[in-house]
Design a binder for these strands. Structure first.
Lengths: 192, 192
DNA sequence: AGGCAATCTAGCCATTGGCAAGTTCCGGCT
DNA sequence: AGCCGGAACTTGCCAATGGCTAGATTGCCT
């Protein structure tokens, strides 16, 4: 008898997986992945401490699921990009809009490397990365696209990383980070 | 009586602080900062589990000390740089030679932000960063040095980060990462 | 209606970080 | 020399965590 009147929660949560994910993203965004506590997530969702394990095997499983989701979101964002600079802007925007995903996606030591969902999602996003570089620089046919890709990715990734870790606060000031990135991009890739 | 003949360790370690630091750098370099266990470090050094706390208040204190040391090392490395591209190369080289330091230095959530040693060491390295940019680009007088600094730092930091997190393995292959970075730099900063 | 599998709970264990109180030792001062 | 203050280290403790196992509950499918 669920005693549904007031306060009493039903035995089955209904959407625990998503609830845990939401809480995890929230916690990671504010305190980083290291501070993530499965038991705390369970408490927030109002379930027992062992409940999360049923949806994500372990801590690593949870982080892996987040990383996979992140790669999917990133791939979608990059797919709409028009030109290399725009792809970079979208990369940075993704990092700002999904800081928790971003902080987890590129940390192999936190992830279950063999995971299928992760592998396929990662393949998607890398493919978009590659696409953005190869299709968008017809005028620079002489340069190695592989090298250009490394350069563009390093630049965007570095900016996003430094931004999220608040290491650019002093330099960017109150300007819009996205705009700063855009102008910096024009400095490095004077194609536009 | 220390019973110095065989096996028996003296009550005082002699150089515990350094021993703990060495062990910590080792552990972080292989498993990342999240996997760091104070008790494990104590075991490795052959002391009790509470001994480390005497030299570094807590986990945060240890990581803060490492970060401060790292900023000092980075500042020293950058001080010898000749030109912006060379500074970038040295930045990447520093990350490869001191991966543990590098992985900790730019993670505020792991550090005691008020710490004096950290603050001063960080001031040193940022100053060298700024120097490398402002002094090395006389021909591009028109461009905002602040923006050029962001661009250069983002690029170098991104490359170093992606390299350490093994996200460039597939792209760099068996080439020398430093050489790859150098040629990528020439692509972005066609001054050389 | 019956049963099965997914979902969730309860309890246990090893490990960890951090704190407090006690012990050993070094070094300086008289 | 003797002593004494403080630094270096230890032992013991507590709360919290991740992960495992066994058991309870429930929705769903036939």
């Amino acid at each position: 008898m669920p005693e549904n009147s007031t306060g009493e929660r039903p035995y089955h949560h209904g959407d625990l997986r998503r609830a845990i994910l939401r809480a995890a993203l929230d916690a990671i965004a504010t305190d980083g992945p290291s501070a993530l506590s499965l038991r705390d997530l369970a408490r927030r969702a109002g379930v027992s401490h062992a409940a999360p394990a049923h949806h994500f095997k372990d801590r690593t499983g949870l982080l892996t699921a987040i990383a996979a989701e992140g790669h999917g979101l990133l791939a979608a964002a990059l797919a709409e990009a028009e030109g290399l600079p725009d792809a970079g802007v979208r990369y940075v925007r993704f990092a700002r809009e999904h800081p928790a995903h971003f902080q987890v996606m590129f940390r192999p030591e936190l992830l279950r490397e063999g995971d299928l969902e992760l592998t396929t999602a990662r393949a998607l996003s890398s493919e978009q990365l590659r696409m953005a570089v190869t299709t968008a620089r017809p005028e620079a046919a002489g340069t190695d696209p592989r090298l250009a890709g490394i350069a563009a990715w390093s630049f965007s990734h570095g900016f996003a990383t430094l931004l999220l870790s608040r290491n650019l606060d002093g330099v960017v000031g109150d300007q819009d980070p996205e705009e700063v990135f855009r102008t910096a991009t024009e400095l490095l890739f004077p194609s536009a």
